[in-house]
């Protein structure tokens, strides 16, 4: 059952927090706004009935990625963040915002007017069917390990590769030639 109120609440706050994150002056403030935005997104996911995704959002994004961001910000130091909040210059800023706004309007228009935006195709995973099969988590997990097993393993490989890459990039110079 969709809770419209939950959706509007989390959605609105999500928008606000992401605006603060995107245009904020203080780097740490930006980071924490982004954390809050991720929490709100998780709420939206939950309101849409994607419980596993919501929880993963909190674990992965708000919990791991943002921690990483905050670490790096701390390492580099706010003092050295020259021009942290400054923009490119008034003309480019204005043009960028205007263009983004225009694109947004267009997108909404498209969605509202098309069948994609308004129709509902019926699939096998309606809310009742999912509830009957043991809940969203169970159903999605079963799918991930059966039908989507290959992408799952590939993503695993990607994660390993990223880890290696990050470590390689950060090894101090004098040690790199030896390893």
């Amino acid at each position: 059952m969709m809770n419209a109120a939950a959706f509007f609440l989390f959605g609105g706050f999500g928008l606000a927090f992401s605006a603060m994150a995107a245009f904020g002056r203080n780097m740490v403030g930006c980071a924490f706004s982004l954390v809050m935005a991720f929490f709100c997104f998780a709420g939206v996911y939950a309101a849409l009935g994607a419980h596993l995704v919501a929880v993963l959002q909190i674990f992965v994004y708000a919990g791991a990625v943002m921690v990483l961001f905050v670490f790096v910000i701390m390492i580099i130091g706010s003092r050295r963040m020259t021009g942290a909040g400054a923009g490119q210059g008034r003309f480019v800023t204005g043009a960028g915002v205007l263009a983004a706004g225009a694109a947004l309007v267009l997108l909404i228009k498209v969605f509202r007017g098309s069948a994609v935006g308004t129709g509902r195709v019926s699939g096998p995973f309606t809310a009742d069917a999912v509830a009957a099969a043991g809940g969203n988590t169970r159903v999605l997990s079963e799918l991930l390990f059966s039908e989507y097993a290959l992408p799952f393993e590939l993503v695993t490989a990607v994660l390993v590769a990223a880890a290696v890459c990050a470590v390689t990039l950060l090894i101090p110079k004098r040690e790199r030639s030896g390893s």
């Binding site: 995107a22 960028g96 997108l107 909404i108």
Partner: peptide, 19 residues
């Protein structure tokens, strides 16, 4: 879409890499 555009505008406008 709105969140996307906010993010995009931020990319265009900000000078700081982490941002």
């Amino acid at each position: 879409a709105g969140i996307f555009m906010i993010g995009f505008a931020g990319v265009l406008v900000r000078r700081n890499v982490i941002a």
